[in-house]
């Protein structure tokens, strides 16, 4: 049956990859729920391989400058800004 054993440490690892902090209770609750969901996903194995040739159409446009948001508009929703820039934590 399922090889999807999910413990709180696995959940914590995935949360780290996804850049989402979780508290311990949440990681524990998720572990049980993820095991259920992944177990359910298991039977996708039975699905045959399907060859498809999707219809693809080139929708590129020429690379020309066009109207866009002003700097003020782009910064309007930022929690912190400085001198016309977004402000974030220090790098490295």
């Amino acid at each position: 049956m399922s090889d999807a054993s999910v413990d709180p440490a696995t959940v914590a690892h995935v949360a780290d990859l996804a850049r989402v902090d979780l508290d311990e209770d949440e990681a524990e609750a998720f572990a049980a729920q993820f095991a259920d969901v992944l177990d359910y996903f298991e039977t996708l194995d039975e699905v045959p391989e399907i060859d498809t040739e999707p219809e693809l159409v080139n929708v590129l446009r020429t690379d020309e400058a066009r109207e866009s948001l002003s700097q003020d508009e782009a910064l309007r929703n930022a929690p912190e800004t400085e001198d016309g820039y977004f402000e974030g934590p220090p790098v490295g």
Partner: peptide
């Protein structure tokens, strides 16, 4: 959170 983590 659940869906972002399961997707990841």
């Amino acid at each position: 959170k659940r869906r972002v983590l399961l997707g990841t």
